[in-house]
Design a binder for these strands. Structure first.
Lengths: 362, 362
DNA sequence: TTGAAAGCGCTAACAC
DNA sequence: GTGTTAGCGCTTTCAA
């Protein structure tokens, strides 16, 4: 059977369509309770569901929002942003159009046009990871950027506070007593977060009066293998320069550090402490031992973006909102192995026996 | 400035709206090339973009599809299904409404109603993993189920061929020479795939004339830790009953198997071969050594579902389409360690030397 | 307290 | 070849 229209409800209830519309939209209007009742029953009886299309055409508001992203939906890293955005959309009675563009400019342009043709009430432009992007042509000026910032400004945006996050990570290590802390950085086309986290790292080293050792700032291919290789290099350092703790740019790199440590027969955190970044779902918590890390507030950023886009929350015009990255304490951080007073003759080598400095010191 | 309407284009080009509509929709109609040209220019000049709302209202086709899922978008496991579905939607000029319900029945019901009110042309009901579900009330009968089947039938659906996938995994191991092959199964509320893969396992054991050993069918909590614990049990078996290979229900469990093996000082694949399932993005390939596994054809299933939903492909009415799970060969499978003719005195212990039987036998 | 009617922007049957 | 016009299903102004 065809969809019931408002006129069907009207005739079933013996009133005009105006009345039906007024009742169903809970208008203030003075309609007798009796009529209200009749209309509601009639609507239920004929199975009436208003057409969003017709309503949208008339009101010029569609209760619809477009979320365009590079590939957050089809990649396993940032899905929680979608959850946050969707939850808000649902709370506000909106539906979301999602389009992953694979970072293809042509697809992006078409998507923006299609979304505009749909007359979405709001638009969110999201990235899989924190970056500065060129705002796509044709993007409406009230769009909000999620996990990225437009190169020229001019839009509201939300990104993680990676500098503070990096600082928090290193502070965690300093508080445990570490002084020789390496930063296992991302190599190649360094993401902006890598610079920011480095700043946090240096800042805390400064606070703690630790002289940064350039040898402890290493770069790696962002993968478990890349992390492993770089950490092997770190562990090859002469003992007195070897790090007792590693702050990894992200959890994948941290996983590589685990592998390198295990191959050396090193125990985490007894012989080496590690803190990651991202709190990647189903990886950070599943390491052995579970990885202490800094969480990317994906869900919260998703919520923030949608709230601002829908006008539920006021986002400062043309400003970037920094969102806190909380420390997730698990079991990969402990006190450093006891100091060796003077350089020993031992060379870096595969340790199968428990190293002498490995006894916990508290 | 307000959106340009079709009438703006018409007056700019000095023609009627009919002509504009005909031209812009590439109708066969007899319109002079000259007019076509003028209309196109006028449209571009005023920046005309047709309103999908008005068009949808008039034609009763919205070029829009609703994809409702439990949580494929917000969880890191099945995002590629979305990529497949989206790619097809884009190719067909459709936009997709995505709603993750978190498997909440009330949210699901509301979402279905909202999507119906939007007059989506098609609807896909997707799950994060292969399961049999109760078709939600109110779901239109031409909806297609993705990675799940409706309990009572009556809908078109696509799921992975887990039985064949399980068989392929075990065949891989048998071909490498293994006879003592464990199935590291999912415990608890066993997913339907667990039964199916077990069938495949038993089938291939039968083909190979291997008597299934109940001690080699173990269950684990579906997590790396769960896998590790279960595999430790397996490795504690007396040598002659100990498995030389493990087929894990999924990659997460396989990761646990890696951990257990490493703690025993066992090398993969020299001392123990492992095959996983899922080809989970960024985990299977990043293991050390990279994990041989069976891929879940997420992208292809997503494509299939959208193609059928949009009528690009004929899906058999009320039938479940089984999609092949390809073997992804990496480096975790090798020949079994040489047989020890009679129980030896060697106990399970950390092997640092390469065992004499480790030479490849083909 | 309720109803008539205009109109949101478009397509398509029909007329010329 | 091209134009007129009737709706698609709704909201909302204005009148009664």
């Amino acid at each position: 059977m065809a969809r019931a229209r408002i006129s069907d409800v009207a005739s079933a209830a013996g009133v005009s369509v105006t009345t039906v519309s007024l009742v169903l939209n809970n208008a203030e209007a003075r309609i007798s309770d009796d009529t209200r009742q009749r209309v509601r029953e009639a609507a239920k009886a004929v199975g009436y569901e208003p057409s969003s299309l017709a309503r949208g055409l008339r009101t010029q508001r569609t209760r619809t929002v477009g979320l365009i992203s590079d590939e957050i939906a089809t990649t396993p890293f940032a899905g929680r942003m979608l959850a946050g955005a969707q939850d808000v959309a649902r709370e506000q009675g909106h539906l979301v159009f999602l389009v992953d563009t694979g970072a293809d400019a042509a697809i992006e342009r078409d998507a923006i046009a299609a979304l505009a043709a749909q007359q979405v009430d709001a638009m969110i432009y999201a990235c899989m990871w924190h970056q500065v992007v060129d705002a796509p042509q044709g993007l409406r000026s009230d769009a909000v950027f999620l996990d990225c910032r437009p190169a020229g400004g001019g839009y509201r945006s939300v990104v993680p506070d990676d500098r503070a996050g990096g600082a928090a990570a290193v502070r965690e290590l300093v508080a445990a007593g570490h002084r020789r802390i390496a930063y296992l950085d991302a190599g190649g086309a360094k993401p902006i977060a890598s610079h920011l986290r480095l700043e946090g790292y240096l800042e805390v080293l400064g606070e703690a009066g630790i002289e940064p050792d350039p040898a402890l700032h290493v770069e790696a291919d962002v993968s478990a293998l890349g992390g492993r290789i770089a950490v092997e290099g770190l562990l090859d350092l002469p003992e007195e320069r070897r790090p007792t703790a590693i702050f990894a740019f992200n959890d994948r790199l941290a996983v590589g550090a685990y592998t390198a440590a295990h191959h050396r027969g090193l125990d985490i955190p007894r012989d080496l402490s590690i803190v990651g970044y991202d709190d990647q779902q189903f990886v950070a918590a599943e390491q052995d031992p579970p990885l202490t890390t800094i969480a990317l507030p994906h869900y919260e950023m998703g919520r923030w973006a949608m709230e601002v886009a829908l006008g539920v929350r006021a986002g400062d015009e043309d400003a970037t909102h920094l969102m806190e990255c909380p420390v997730i304490r698990r079991d990969s951080v402990g006190p450093p192995p006891a100091q060796v007073a003077k350089p020993s003759r031992r060379r870096a080598s595969v340790n199968t026996e428990r190293p002498p400095w490995a006894a916990p010191d508290r």
